[in-house]
Design a protein around this nucleic acid. Structure first.
Length: 309
DNA sequence: ATGCATGAGGC
DNA sequence: CCTCATGCATA
């Protein structure tokens, strides 16, 4: 009764409603508010800043305490220790980088190179890798495929495109949600619709580097199409589900959030046991805490904060 | 614009 | 259980 909607392509809010209610436009692409570390721009009370620091320390200590009590000292989890780069130099855009229905997943994941430092450490090209790249290119060529070697792996290019995209999208009088649903009309194999959230994140670069690269060609295609025929607003015929249970969004209170951030600072990847302990201390569901950590990790990897250029 | 959640795919 | 791409619900 609630798990049946695996991936409802989100019903369009207004099929043919020429309503454009863009938010206050670009809230500035360079408005970096979410620091990638335990120093969130809290605009709380004046005394909050002081308390916050002390609290954070206390929580951090508590986190360590938890770790100790669990009897697990885990030095640290060497997860992203392996540094790898894209398997092939230029194949991202040509190999169906997007989702089909909701089973997207194209395993072209760049395997977390170095997280925040991947961009600056990438220039470390091994001879073997170069050779492999050449070989791959040769293979593609032999296959008769004109590999679209888009050099859009460049963060700057992506940033520039995102900016242009937003500008032109607004010029067309189209909302982010409209763009999302319109993508399905492009009939690009393997490309369905996207949500307003994703379009928004693309424009604000709050997506992973790889995700940006995958979405760029698609959004570019839409843009050209839309500008070519500046008149169709497309509508996404989707049946309305009657009586579907609405998902409720849990809201973690500020105090708990601060604690979680403190724990995260000392242990970004707590074990199941630690998560359980934290959940208990904060009186939150274990799953909520687990997901919180997952989301927090993802945030660290977003373009805006991983770029060191 | 963004917080919390889902689910596929990979270990 | 994690990572990733995505999305619903919301501030």
């Amino acid at each position: 009764m609630m798990s049946m909607n695996s991936k409802q392509p989100h019903f369009a809010m207004h099929p043919t409603l020429p309503e454009h209610k863009y938010p206050s436009l670009h809230s500035s692409s360079e408005a970096i508010r979410r620091a990638c570390l335990p120093t969130p721009p809290l605009q709380s009370n004046l005394f909050a800043s002081l308390d916050e620091t002390l609290l954070a320390r206390a929580e951090a200590l508590a986190a360590v305490d938890i770790a100790v009590s669990q009897g697990k000292s885990h030095p640290f989890k060497p997860d992203a220790t392996y540094h790898t780069m894209n398997s092939v130099p230029c194949t991202s855009t040509s190999t169906v980088p997007l989702a089909h229905h909701h089973h997207h997943h194209h395993h072209h994941q760049a395997l977390e190179p170095g997280d925040l430092l991947d961009h600056i450490s990438s220039p470390s090209l091994a001879a073997g890798q170069v050779a492999a790249a050449s070989a791959a290119a040769a293979v593609v060529g032999a296959a008769g495929l004109a590999s679209i070697c888009d050099s859009d792996t460049d963060p700057r290019e992506l940033e520039a495109f995102a900016e242009r995209f937003k500008q032109r999208r607004i010029k067309l009088g189209v909302t982010q949600a409209d763009v999302g649903s319109a993508l399905a009309n492009l009939k690009i194999p393997g490309v369905g619709s996207l949500s307003q959230s994703t379009i928004c994140r693309f424009e604000s670069l709050t997506l992973s580097h790889n995700n940006m690269i995958a979405l760029k060609p698609i959004l570019q295609a839409w843009l050209e199409e839309a500008e070519g025929a500046q008149r169709e607003k497309m509508n996404k015929p989707e049946l309305f589900n009657g009586g579907e249970k609405k998902r409720k969004r849990t809201s973690i209170a500020a105090p708990e959030k601060r604690s979680l951030e403190a724990y995260f600072a000392v242990q970004p990847r707590p074990s199941s046991e630690k998560i359980a302990a934290i959940a208990e201390k904060l009186d939150l569901k274990k799953n909520v805490v687990r997901v919180w950590f997952c989301n927090q990790r993802q945030k660290q990897k977003r373009m805006k904060f991983s770029a060191t250029y």
